[in-house]
Amino acid sequence: MKTHYDLIVIGGGVLGTFHAYHALKKGLKVAILEKDKMAKGATIQNFGQVVPSGMDSKWQRYGRESLAIYKKIQNQFDISVRQNGSVYLASNEEELQLIEELAQINKSNNYESHLLSKQQCLDKYPGVRGDYVQAGLFFPEEVTIEPKTMIYKLQEYMIQHMGLEFSTNVCVVECENVNDGVFIRSTSNEEFFATKVIICNGSEFKVLFPHLYNNSDLEISKLQMMQTKPQKNYTLNGSVLSGLSIRRYESFYECPSFKTIKSKEEKNTLEKKWSVHILFKQATDGSIILGDSHQYADAQNTDDLGANLDMDIDNFMIQEAKKIINLPNYEIQNRWFGIYSQCKTKDIFEHTIGKNIHIITGIGGKGMTGSAGFSKENISKIFNK
């Protein structure tokens, strides 16, 4: 039997890692068990945008706490955080109305944002098309990270400076409450024991407690994204979100005119069919990350989404992106899809088995932005600290 831990986290993605981070901050003895050689799910297959601006009031609070946590860690150890802000570009009068309403909501919530005129948008964001943008809403506090490296740098920091024990290639197949904690066994018959276990399994529903997930309201979203070749002599600061993002993100649901504007939208468009909204972010190598789309399946039907990319979706996204920004090139060097889980009726899936096994998943597209702040509150709740 291995060491007795205060907490074992099953799953080394961003949600699990930040639960471990906050437990370590409270002086607890913590281990993470990751089934693969390294985390490779939604945590690394995303844009790397930390945008509380897109969230409803509850999750914006978590997102703003996340911003503070990311920046604090970055000041001590490079985890690829860049404070370069986010902007939402309105393309017509309806979207302009929504960003103006959100600016007022931000003001009442004490969340800094600035309305930008059309000319200010054109000056600040090279290549943005004058026949597209009408105005913008800028969030200076928001950050970008490099998703393919951030989580590994964060875990390295936690191992070196916080005492995290991190084990990879450990696939847990048995997890059960015993008298004074939780017993864990892996496929290779390694045994672990902890006072409490948190399972952050992302979209892995086949190994532990599959019946629970198959009878839940969890669903899977498959997102397609692309990366251009590096853009020579071109800089795009921060995250750029389009009018389709304004029409999709939850923060705008709270705007007084949102329901009326949504009711006027055409129903049978390709952006509706594929749930497309166009985002841009420049990576550190000068390339542009571009996307994304959304296709859905229930938890028990994950395989129905397939393992292939739909080139019609990619081509449509490039076509729409060209209407927004004239990049020096739209040559694509990488294409991929990410998978995340979310709930149909709740904002996150939480289930406790007995007293000490806590399943936390289904955070949806809020993971990179909301995990750090949410996990801080959740660890305090779980450990009554």
Score class of each variant (00 low, 15 high):
Glu204Val: 07
Arg185Lys: 15
Cys175Glu: 05
Glu191Asn: 12
Thr187Leu: 11
Ile198Leu: 15
Tyr213Pro: 04
Cys171Ile: 03
Cys175His: 00
Glu165Gly: 02
Asn189Trp: 03
Ile184Gln: 02
Val172Leu: 03
Cys171Gly: 01
Glu165Cys: 00
Leu208Arg: 09
Asn215Pro: 07
Asp217Asn: 15
Phe192Met: 08
Leu164Asp: 04
Phe183Asp: 02
Val182Tyr: 00
Val182Ser: 04
Thr168Asn: 12
Asn215Phe: 06
Ser216Asn: 11
Leu208His: 11
Glu190Lys: 13
Leu164Trp: 02
Glu190Ser: 10
Asn177Cys: 00
Ser188Ala: 11
Thr168Lys: 07
Leu212Gly: 09
Ile199Val: 15
Leu212Glu: 14
Ala194Thr: 13
Glu176Asp: 05
Ile184Asn: 02
Asp217Arg: 11
Ser203Glu: 11
Asn179Arg: 13
Met162Ala: 08
Leu212Met: 12
Ser186Asn: 04
Val178Ile: 12
Phe166Gln: 02
Glu165Tyr: 00
Ala194Arg: 09
Ser216Lys: 10
Ile199Phe: 03
Asp217Ala: 11
Val172Glu: 01
Glu191Met: 06
Val182Cys: 02
Leu212Lys: 09
Asn169Trp: 05
Val197Pro: 00
Ile198Gln: 11
Lys206Leu: 00
Asn169Ile: 08
Ile184Thr: 03
Asn201Asp: 14
Arg185Ser: 12
Asn189Glu: 15
Asp180Pro: 08
Ser186Ala: 06
Phe193Thr: 13
Asn177Lys: 06
Phe192Leu: 04
Thr168Ser: 06
